[in-house]
Design a protein around this nucleic acid. Structure first.
Lengths: 170, 170
DNA sequence: TATTGTTATACTCTATAACTATA
DNA sequence: TATAGTTATAGAGTATAACAATA
């Protein structure tokens, strides 16, 4: 009977507000950097980065979407934009004819390379400038746990695609 | 010559990814809750909450915008929506005829009250469920510092309105 | 019948620039 | 001349539902 009190503890409120503020400012700044450096949005950057991280630089639409986008049409939209610019190629999957495999092109890699250093630098300057090693460790640990929880949380109305259980997608 | 290496440390990368993932999932979930509970977006919620936190429930447009919105027209847009729904009233400022004072109405307070508990509960369930008191303290401390830094950061091209120096707006 | 992905469509939100009015 | 706010407008992104094709 003592759970879920009506309000957050003051420290929780503080943490929450700080989190949202940092999130908002950081996202805004990063989005701007990406736009200027390579004319990509944050979602597109995530997609490129994910492909770049995958051996072969290829993923199925569904796997690519995972955690980045909240609707299938949203991914189709972004993938179209990327394909129009020649940063990725889409081709039917050989294994499953229903599927579409998205592959990073050389130009896609080049764009990623053009954008990444500035991205890193912005994150360092904006997020990590005021933090020391212990802070970073704590953040990684705490937010890692929060992320895991959020990921596994029943989305309170599973609008999103069912995820293959047992994958965490590093 | 040892500053700003080309890449983030692995722990930094981890912390950054976790942060963005939590931010994305949390924002999405919270936005949904607010929509369902009171048909307001997160920005509108912030505006209402800020007004609700102010003695008299009234603020000038410029002060209201601070940190919530990145363009003047963006605030005008949201304020219009809120006014159309009767949640706020806008009136010319008595002191400065150029200014506009936004005041929370009773209905605005009611909406805030209708939305707040669910909001709190969502944050607790999604963000704080996996964290203990020490985590919350650490988060508040670390992100508080990051937020302060971000706030004071030269926006790398001051598109936003110049802020009156010396105000931090709790 | 369930799943993959696309399309059509409507809607929300944001930003830039031009404009008005007051300080 | 600088500031406060609005308006017009255009563009980016998102989501829902209907659809086609394959498993």
């Amino acid at each position: 009977m003592t759970d879920t009190p009506a309000a957050l503890a003051p420290r929780q409120l503080e943490a929450y507000f700080a989190f949202m503020e940092v999130g908002s400012l950081l996202r805004h700044a990063v989005e701007k950097q990406l736009k200027e450096a390579g004319d990509v949005g944050y979602v597109q950057f995530q997609l490129l980065a994910r492909l770049g991280d995958t051996p072969g630089g290829a993923l199925r639409m569904t796997d690519l979407a995972d955690g980045v986008v909240y609707s299938r049409s949203g991914l189709t939209y972004q993938a179209q934009l990327l394909e129009q610019r020649g940063l990725v190629v889409r081709a039917p999957s050989p294994e499953d004819e229903r599927g579409v495999v998205v592959t990073l092109t050389d130009e896609g890699r080049a764009t990623l390379a053009a954008v990444f250093p500035g991205h890193i630098e912005a994150v360092r300057r904006l997020l990590f400038a005021a933090l020391d090693e212990a802070d970073v460790d704590a953040l990684a640990d705490i937010l890692g746990r929060a992320a895991a929880r959020l990921r596994s949380d029943p989305p309170r109305s599973a609008a999103a695609r069912r995820r293959r259980p047992g994958r965490t997608s590093a």
